[in-house]
């Protein structure tokens, strides 16, 4: 794989992880919305952020487990670092919802509105990824 190919591969993985993370956020928001009347903004921030961090770790680690079997040997340190770095986009994807819920905690809007806005930012994020991916497709 040439340098440009390798770079495209990483970029593709990052988009994939961002989509994955965004859908993860939407699942968390759906769960929070189910009990919106008793959910506080801080609960929502914790669920979204901890959920994203846990998914990041789980996703990178599961990738490395698979790689270990495929290689039939230890995974080099740079591959481990790369797996965690690429999957970091899962955490990045949780930033819009986190910001929206922090603002809800600061009283800018209600928790229920915040959760709707979190869903809105997620749908917009997915659309933006779609635009970026569409630009590179042939």
């Amino acid at each position: 794989m040439g340098h440009a190919d390798a770079e495209r591969h990483v970029t593709g993985e990052k988009y994939a992880e961002y989509v994955y993370g965004t859908i993860g956020v939407m699942v968390a928001v759906a769960g929070l919305n189910a009990g919106a009347h008793d959910v506080r903004a801080t609960n929502a921030v914790v669920v979204v952020l901890i959920g994203a961090l846990a998914t990041w770790f789980a996703h990178a680690f599961s990738h490395l487990v698979g790689e270990r079997v495929k290689r039939q040997g230890p995974v080099p340190r740079e591959r481990i670092v790369a797996a965690f770095a690429t999957s970091w986009m899962i955490v990045v994807a949780a930033v819009p919802a986190t910001v929206v819920m922090v603002l809800s905690g600061l009283g800018l809007w209600s928790v229920s509105t915040g959760l709707s806005l979190a869903n809105g930012t997620a749908v917009v994020s997915l659309a933006v990824v779609g635009v970026l991916v569409g630009r590179v497709s042939v």
Binding site: M26, V29, A30, V123, A127, G130, G134
Partner: peptide
């Protein structure tokens, strides 16, 4: 590059996002 190849990912990802929100809204009414 056709228009569809440019817009299909926007359409697909937006539909997925909107479907999740719609399912959520539906579940909320139950």
């Amino acid at each position: 590059m056709t228009l569809w190849s440019r817009v299909r990912y926007v359409v697909i990802l937006t539909v997925i996002g909107t479907a999740i929100v719609a399912l959520e809204a539906g579940a909320h009414r139950l």
